[in-house]
Amino acid sequence: MPTAPTTDAVRPSRRPARDLALVAVFVGVIAALGLVPGLQVPGFAVPITLQSMGVVLAGAVLGGRRGFLSVVLFLGLVALGLPLLAGGRGGLSWFASPSAGFLYVWPFVALLVGWLTYRMGAPYKLRWGIPINVLGGMVLMYLGGVAGLMVFGKLGFSAAFAALAIYLPGDAVKMVVAALVARGVHAAMPDLLPVHEPVDDAEPVAA
């Protein structure tokens, strides 16, 4: 099946170096999105930052495999002691905190969003992108968050869910913004998303 013309950037010999660079640089993107001062929404105790949007974008932009690796690497740096979580937080302690469930599920959020987004292929469509982001960035994300509160906080399911409910409206907005950003990025860099007929699992694979 004819695919997009091979540009120099995606020749097989280029892939390992390019993929390595994409994975590493996106760690920086996730960190940078955590630096945006939280948007303080009136009536909500917790500021909304764009970091979890970075996790969804890692998948939506890089695809499942590279997005997953990038988020794992980001969490790795946090665990090593770099203050990269929103608000300049970092270190091992965050992996034992009541909100750790979110962190543990992040790589899988990127994996799911990325896998589905690359299945959809080019061109990026909001009518698919938004539900994909909601599925990964909210449904899966909150399963992780609730499970974390149940394990680390010994809370029941409904109490855990209630404690997190204040994040829901902000996250819903972020999922739409993430889809808009992903559409903009794929329009500017068309050689990322695979061009394929309905069934063609053509995600670029690194050696």
Binding site: V29, A32, L33, V61, G184, L192
Partner: peptide, 9 residues
């Protein structure tokens, strides 16, 4: 977001 991600890529 678009500007940040595109320039980073």
């Amino acid at each position: 977001g678009v500007a940040l991600v595109v320039r980073s890529l």
